[in-house]
Computed example of a mutant assay.
Amino acid sequence: MKYVILVGDGMADYPIEDLGNKTPLQVANKPNMDELAKKGCSGLLKTIPKGMNPGSDVANLSIFGYNPKKYYTGRGPLEAASLGIKLKNDEVAFRCNFVTVNNNVMVDFSADHITTEESKELINVLNNKIKSGKFYVGVSYRNIFIYPDGKINKLKTTPPHDIVGERIDKYLPKGENSKKIVEIMEKSREILNNHPINKQREKNGKKPANMIWLWGQGKRPKMIPFEKRFNIKGATIAAVDLIKGIGSYLGLKNIEVPGATGYIDTNYKAKGKYAIKALNNYDFVYIHVEAPDEAGHAGDVEEKIKAIENIDSKILGQIIDNVNMEELTIAVLPDHFTPVSVKTHTSEPVPYVLYSPRLKPDDVYSYDEFSAKNGSLGIDKGYNLIKKMMG
């Protein structure tokens, strides 16, 4: 048996008035997801344990089969692993966003999706000017900062995508060692504000990367390898460092896909093609698509619907057409809600559909947030999905 989990990041949503009080999943043309619902079973998954932040880090760790309450230490160390950074015991990894801040207001959490090439040059400048730690280049606005002082047990930080349009003052890091971290962030403003790259971006009508935002801090987690836990070899198909980082800690093969961007312009067809190819060598493939989440954060309904339809036709459709469904167990789900009305993550249980030739279909005939509530799988904890897939 082969196993596939297809995650449309942030795909779930609330009813939208302009869509006739329906969700993007309800109005999207997604015949393959609906077909899986007819031939499989549906339900809800609690991917965000009670009291935890509804981030993609927590949610995806849960979907991989690992209880975040036990294994999660922070987003930073997960993304650091994808860059080959091996954290020492006292080191702390932060997610480091390039952001746009004007008059102390968070204007853009991605600095207008700055290119990786531009980020690389700015990271080099920061490393030359700031000696309190080390910066590493990731993808686009998503970078890493390694801080050598491990005293951050009570440090509180806020994801920048949660505070777009708000003043940053009350969201700056607070608690243990926060003064040092805030000083680093403030110093970045002095360094980046008049940098030639940002001057050129402004001339080109793009927002400048005029500050770094440090968040998601944590130390190296202790993970049990995926193959040891579930007795199968696996791989990931993803463009974002977070998923690659989780994969690295779990001993999964991170497969690079040409044109996979971690944005709405990602190469969906290539992801589907490489996933099918991966199933020749691995028993388990975890496919992650960031596009619906990006559209949700932007409050863009049309782009979200388009992303869902692309996932359905260009990834799921390819899998259904090219893999023996009698030898495949597949789950399709979002990791969390990213409603376009709030432009950030929320923690409701997510709808999922599970197909397996061993499962008797239930009476659900379409895949969406409301149909899934009537599924035979009921409601369960996210980290039980893998075990459920394997029977």
Rank of each mutant, 00 (worst) to 15 (best):
E79T: 04
E79R: 04
E79M: 12
E79L: 11
L83Y: 09
L83Q: 11
G84Y: 11
G84S: 15
I85S: 06
I85C: 12
K86A: 14
K88N: 13
N89R: 13
N89F: 10
N89M: 04
D90N: 14
D90M: 06
D90K: 15
D90E: 10
A93C: 09
A93H: 13
F94L: 07
F94N: 07
F94H: 09
R95T: 01
R95G: 02
R95A: 04
R95M: 04
C96F: 04
C96M: 11
N97K: 00
N97T: 02
F98E: 03
T100D: 01
T100N: 07
N102V: 15
N103Q: 14
N103V: 13
N103G: 05
N103H: 14
N104H: 10
V105R: 05
V105E: 07
V105Q: 01
V105P: 00
V107G: 06
V107T: 15
V107P: 08
F109D: 03
S110F: 11
S110E: 00
S110M: 09
S110I: 04
S110A: 14
D112F: 12
D112K: 07
D112W: 11
H113L: 13
H113W: 06
I114L: 07
I114D: 00
T115N: 00
T116D: 02
T116R: 02
T116C: 05
T116I: 06
T116K: 02
E117V: 11
E117L: 07
E118S: 08
K120S: 08
K120M: 05
E121W: 03
L122W: 00
N124Q: 14
N124A: 06
V125A: 12
V125C: 12
L126T: 02
L126H: 04
K129Y: 13
I130M: 12
I130F: 05
I130H: 12
S132Y: 08
G133D: 15
K134W: 07
F135Y: 13
F135T: 06
Y136L: 12
V137N: 14
V137R: 08
V139W: 08
V139Q: 09
V139L: 15
S140W: 03
S140T: 06
R142T: 04
R142E: 09
N143A: 14
I144R: 10
I146K: 12
Y147P: 02
P148Y: 14
K151M: 15
I152E: 02
I152R: 01
N153W: 10
N153A: 08
N153M: 12
K154Y: 04
L155G: 03
K156T: 14
K156E: 13
T157N: 04
T157R: 02
T158F: 13
T158Q: 12
P159K: 02
H161P: 00
D162E: 09
D162V: 00
D162T: 01
D162P: 00
I163T: 06
I163L: 06
V164K: 01
V164H: 02
G165V: 01
E166A: 11
R167D: 14
I168P: 07
I168Q: 08
I168N: 10
D169N: 15
D169I: 08
D169Q: 08
D169F: 08
K170Q: 14
